[in-house]
Simulated assay, not measured.
Amino acid sequence: MMTYVEKWKDKIGYQTALLAATCGLAALLLVSTEIVTRPVIELRLAEDQNALLDQVLGGKVYANDVFNDGHIVSFKGQKYHIYNVKNEQGQVTYHVIKGAEEGYSGLITYLIGVNLDGVIQGVRIISHSETPGLGDKIELAKSPWILSFNHRSLKNTPVWAVKKDGGDFDQFSGATITPRSVVRGIHKAMLALKKDQGESHD
């Protein structure tokens, strides 16, 4: 006949095994869900990226598969994807830069269209997790703020900063960190492109 201590130990052992099995099953489900949803998320991001391409190029015509015609550039500890935009003759007509900058609530991923003179044709936000009603004004659907990058270049914009920091980019009421991050990210991306083209920079 089992003693109370033996019964207690047996019960604890059973509960431990049950807990371990439950944790293992939960981990398996999480991994399985991640494996299943990852391609879907990547596909959606690719679709969003392609949809924004025409916008950052200002509707300009191109003949190549832009996002399969690029390379990675490292600049100040970050990596930027630089893509070539080509015409039917195979000549490069524009560049597209994809980068990311840490915002208030996480990474802000953006796309920039730049002509061969280094002038921005357009900027669009691919993804972000900024505060709804405040930081999400970086989206064109919520505010025209992102259009303030149009026609900017390293030559005609000496100070890349929001007005609060001495620049001439507007900030949002109650959300300075988000626009500050985007301005900083676009500036660094433009410097990365300049570096890639073999030019010197400050």
Rank of each mutant, 00 (worst) to 15 (best):
L57F: 02
L57C: 08
G58M: 09
K60C: 05
K60R: 06
K60G: 00
K60V: 03
V61L: 00
Y62M: 02
Y62D: 04
N64Q: 03
N64F: 05
N68T: 09
D69M: 04
G70S: 10
H71Q: 15
I72F: 13
V73I: 15
V73G: 06
S74N: 13
S74C: 12
F75K: 02
F75V: 04
F75E: 02
K76S: 15
G77R: 06
Y80W: 09
Y80L: 07
Y80R: 00
H81D: 13
H81S: 14
H81R: 15
Y83E: 04
Y83C: 09
N84D: 15
N84I: 13
N84E: 15
V85H: 04
V85Y: 05
K86C: 09
K86M: 12
N87V: 02
N87I: 04
E88C: 09
Q89A: 14
G90K: 03
Q91R: 09
V92H: 08
V92Q: 07
Y94L: 08
H95G: 06
H95T: 01
V96K: 08
V96Y: 05
V96I: 12
K98A: 10
G99Y: 10
G99S: 11
G99V: 07
A100Q: 09
E101K: 09
E101P: 00
E102I: 06
G103T: 01
Y104E: 03
G106P: 03
G106W: 08
Y110P: 02
L111Y: 07
L111I: 10
N115A: 06
N115T: 13
L116W: 15
G118P: 10
G118R: 04
G118K: 03
V119S: 05
Q121A: 07
V123N: 07
R124H: 06
I125P: 05
I125G: 07
I125V: 14
S127C: 12
H128Q: 11
E130K: 09
E130W: 13
T131K: 10
T131I: 12
G133P: 09
G133F: 09
L134W: 11
L134N: 07
